[in-house]
Amino acid sequence: MRRSLIIVKKELVETLRDRATVSSYLFVGAFLMLFNSTTFKGVINVEAFTVYLAPVVGVAVGFNLANRFVREKGEGVLETLLCSPLTLTELWLGKVVGLLIPSYIASLISVMVIGIARGLTLDAPLLIYITLVTPAFIASVIGLLGCLYWILGMREVRILNYVVFFTLSAVMFIVLRFVNAMSVSIELGYLVITATSLAMLSLATCLMRYISKERLIKP
């Protein structure tokens, strides 16, 4: 765990020095400004919109940073890292958290911007959604993506981004739909989404054990 934190710190330093992160934030900012200035007040339900906005923004930034799962191979750092006492799981976990933080920050900023501009009422379920469900969902997308890149031999396969995102989004929206239709409490729905996200992360952690170093360093 301690070594994963070292990776997290490194990822954050690299993120701050990475133009891709800055461009992601600028893109999100520009999108929200455009959205706010072109959508009439009252046309959308801000609370319902936030439920979609928060994970989508986070995942969009996460996608932009996902190449960091495979970057070390191109930079000739991977083999050296794999010779250190660091395990594959520790490296992967450090990367997931290291990429989750900037992605989630973007998500929070977007909620704050829209919230302030449109007068969002932050009730308890929405607060739970933003602080628990959203980061869990973003982490599961990033984590699964990283795991799949590694299973494929440290190759960034862009189509996987969409497959993972749409699969997990489908799960999320089916649950929300089910909650609405069955008149079950929204908190239970959020709990199911969080549990599913964490289950996906656990699955990725288990899969890590089956990835060989040879597979990763293969040209």
Binding site: K10, V77, E79, C83
Partner: peptide, 17 residues
């Protein structure tokens, strides 16, 4: 692995650090 040092073909250095 703590007792082993490695210098391979790649330098093993992070360019942004």
């Amino acid at each position: 692995r703590r007792r082993v040092g490695v210098l391979l073909e790649g330098d093993g250095l992070f360019p942004k650090l």
